[in-house]
């Protein structure tokens, strides 16, 4: 709570949100009807949620900035920004006071691209202010190739946190890592991915129990695969140079055990005995 208030106060001292938004992780809750660069004129005199920006502060706490707009009608338009915690929805705060506000607006346009956000505010004197915000942390995972490294495969080389004022020490907040043996990638015997992999959050890495699928089920922690009473090791499904569905009881060539041990199937999962 204290960290939240401190961050809020430090943000209030910044004139507009362009700098902190340049560290955006994701744009969420985007208005379903407004199109990029369209002047927003309807519905007149109503408050609308334009979008919300998720970003991390310098201590790596994630925040959500909701951007509300009262569409001009009888009265000029108002742009309102409210910083809330990530688990809340902007809709809950549509009529609350904002942390920052820009009033007397004649028109407003915005556009959101993958790595860029732009807002154009025009006041009743037809003076306009443009916010162009490149997203520095936008990252597309590359296809790894020879001589590439794991760091750049996993995340951008430079991860920009939120710029700040003053000499307050940075105290990065760690997230809770997944403990050993926690399932981190749920893949069924029929190769169906039941939930996406969260194995990067494991405290001490992860291990896979091969099941003849391109991706097998994975668990946090270490395993001495191939040894007695341990899961078998993954051997692959292409070195056999044939196209086949690999079922443990019919063809165990996708897995192997150490010399002297044999593969025993538990469902479609091979273990070494």
């Amino acid at each position: 709570m204290i960290a939240f208030l401190f961050t809020l106060i430090s943000f209030m001292t910044l004139a507009n949100p362009t700098l902190k938004w340049s560290n955006a992780i994701e744009i969420v809750e985007k208005h379903e009807f407004y199109k990029n660069n369209e002047v927003i004129t309807k519905p007149e005199n109503s408050w609308q949620v334009l979008f919300a920006v998720l970003y991390r502060d310098e201590n790596m706490v994630t925040f959500k900035d909701c951007l509300f707009y009262r569409v001009p009608g009888i009265e000029p338009g108002i742009l309102k920004l409210k910083t809330i915690s990530i688990e809340k929805s902007c809709g809950e705060f549509i009529f609350s006071d904002g942390h920052q506000q820009w009033s007397g607006l004649k028109s407003l346009q915005f556009s959101i691209a993958n790595d860029f956000l732009s807002l154009n505010l025009t006041n009743s004197n037809y003076q306009s202010e443009k916010w162009d915000i490149p997203f520095f942390n936008v990252y597309r995972r590359p296809v790894p190739k020879i001589l590439s490294n794991s760091a750049e495969y996993r995340s951008p080389q430079f991860i920009f946190l939120n710029p700040h004022r003053g000499n307050a020490p940075i105290t990065p907040q760690k997230s809770i890592a997944l403990k050993d043996q926690t399932p981190c990638h749920n893949v069924s015997d029929t190769c169906e991915e039941k939930s996406p992999s969260i194995c990067f959050q494991c405290e001490h890495g992860w291990f896979e129990i091969p099941n003849g699928c391109p991706q097998g089920p994975k668990f946090c922690g270490r395993s001495e695969c191939g040894l007695k009473n341990q899961p078998a090791c993954r051997r692959g499904m292409k070195y056999q140079r044939k196209t086949a569905d690999y079922e443990c009881r019919l063809d165990q060539s996708f897995a192997y055990c150490a010399k002297g041990l044999s593969v025993q199937c538990q469902g479609n999962l091979p273990y070494c005995l």
């Binding site: 991390r56 790596m60 760091a151 997230s175 890592a177 990067f200």
Partner: peptide, 8 residues
């Protein structure tokens, strides 16, 4: 890591 969803 891990730090709040950062993958490093």
């Amino acid at each position: 890591g891990p730090y709040n969803g950062l993958n490093f």
